[in-house]
Amino acid sequence: MANYKLQINGRSYETETEADTPLLWVLRDHLGLVGTKYGCGIAQCGACTVHLNGNAVRSCSLPVSAVGTKKITTIEGLSAHGDHPVQAAWHEVDVAQCGYCQAGQIMTASALLAKNPTPTAEQIDNAMNGNICRCGTYHRIHEAITLASSKMK
């Protein structure tokens, strides 16, 4: 067991846990940030996506000991009032069905747009291909990213 100080959503958190605990379970079990979802545990589905210094990473496969001082953003901290352009577009396009994967989809999409505010359709496909949606809302995810991109210009 060791003590970890984490920078999450602009706040400092402290937790006692084993070094190999994935960030996902620290967020969910230790810190009560359950917006980040468990889907596969092997970085294949993207449900657990968070930002680490602005990069989309799979928190299920990132040991807490590897986080260091890097800044973590989870879905809860993407915007203060749930109105990040990507979230607003998700609402406007009415993307979600069951909704379980959408936090991960939104985190991947927002990381993409932060780096490339005007992605091509193919760039969207490439960035989003690691995120599975079992309900099959891919068309709307794609549409919402395009919409968010147009509003961020």
Binding site: L33, V34, G35, T36, T74, I75, E76, L78, G82, Q87, W90, H91, D94, A96, G99, Q102, A103, I106
Partner: peptide
């Protein structure tokens, strides 16, 4: 969807 806001804010 009536739960949109809850879903997209985690």
């Amino acid at each position: 969807n009536v739960d949109n806001q809850e879903m997209i804010t985690g």
